[in-house]
């Protein structure tokens, strides 16, 4: 870790001004991933601009259309436990609480959660080639120990997985990311925020240099009656997902009116397949139908030496989680499989 100048920015223009000055300047909010990466010398910064004290975006507010605006600087724990989130978007609440640990959730911000970097072993080891860390150096994971790596949307240059749980729920909920930059404000649909690796795996998302996430909007439909988040991992808590699933179902007269299924732990971004959700519409919420949807979602999966289990695991996890969504009370702490 190198030393850096530390600057507290109280408003956006000040923040933009500092990060513009040098491309080695970085914003810091919760810092839970950035400081980790800096200590490993994987991220370097000549200055850190502390944006925790920017005016605004520290609250959760109701939107006129019935949705909710999550300030980017609200901590993950405060978001998960916010009464409006618990009541209207329990899927988001459950997903957040399945991630990291209580201490980290008390520190990490909503904006920062979207910007976490992969936990690929090779990305984290500066002495191995990694296209995400050093474009053009090669991918060590493709022929390496790839148990934790992606099976969907991979490329020749990267098979890393995006590690967030919160984002899996945000993807399922059709959230919108609000961004500020020197050129003004813009919004990105959640599905357009994160990128697939393609041949530019160094880019995790579509945030431009110098831009700041200011808030995340979730539309009104929260699937608060039938939802579930399931996370499968190598221990019951405080570990990243091998496969996770967020499901929201809207039922009417015993049939599925609307369905959302997003996967974590399988791709470079939360994975959603519209065809699968469309398939479920007007169908009975049965294990058979969910299994068919799972087949559609996993279509085209590409496996590597040590992660072929993820395909079957993901399919079964989808079915289980959709069944759990029919009975959300069956969910257990830590998003473990229901009894």
């Amino acid at each position: 870790m190198n030393n850096f100048s530390y600057i507290k920015a109280n408003d956006l223009p000040t923040a933009f001004g500092h990060v513009r000055l040098g491309d080695a300047a970085k914003y810091i909010a919760g810092g839970t991933n950035l400081i980790d990466l800096m200590k490993y010398n994987l991220t370097k910064a000549s200055s850190l601009v502390d944006i925790n004290h920017l005016v605004g975006n520290h609250d959760i507010e109701e939107l006129p259309d019935g949705g909710l605006r999550l300030g980017a600087f609200v901590r993950n724990a405060a978001t998960a436990y916010h009464p409006l989130v618990e009541e209207r978007y329990p899927l988001l609440s459950r997903a957040i609480l399945a991630g990291a640990s209580a201490q980290i959730r008390n520190m990490a911000t909503n904006g920062g959660n979207l910007l976490q970097r992969t936990r690929c072993y090779y990305f984290y080891d500066a002495n191995t080639p990694c296209n995400k860390r050093e474009p053009g150096s090669g991918c060590s994971a493709i022929l390496g120990y790839n148990r934790i790596m992606a099976i969907l949307g991979t490329s020749e240059s990267c098979i890393a997985v995006f590690p967030s749980d919160m984002c899996v729920a945000l993807a399922a909920l059709d959230a919108v990311v609000n961004i500020s930059g020197e050129d003004g404000e813009r919004s990105l649909a959640f599905a357009d925020f994160h990128r697939l690796p393609g041949d530019t795996p160094e880019l995790d998302n579509n945030l431009k240099p110098g831009e700041i996430i200011t808030s995340i909007d979730i539309p009104q439909k929260g699937f608060a009656r039938n939802y579930s988040y399931l996370k499968l991992r190598d221990r019951n808590s405080y570990a990243f997902a091998l496969v996770s699933v967020a499901t929201g179902l809207e039922l009417e007269n015993g049939l599925i009116k609307d369905a959302r299924i997003a996967l974590g732990g399988v791709a470079h971004k939360p994975w959603r397949v519209k065809e699968a959700e469309d398939f479920l519409k007007e169908k009975e919420p049965s294990a058979e139908n969910f299994a068919q949807a799972a087949e559609i979602i996993l279509f085209g999966a590409k496996v590597f030496e040590y992660n072929s289990f993820k395909v079957e695991l993901a399919k079964r996890a989808i079915v289980r989680n959709c069944m759990m969504a029919l009975n959300p009370e069956s969910q257990l702490p830590g998003a473990q499989p229901s009894a």
Partner: peptide, 8 residues
């Protein structure tokens, strides 16, 4: 390196 957590 996963050692057990309390939940295990």
């Amino acid at each position: 390196y996963h050692i057990p957590v309390h939940a295990d």
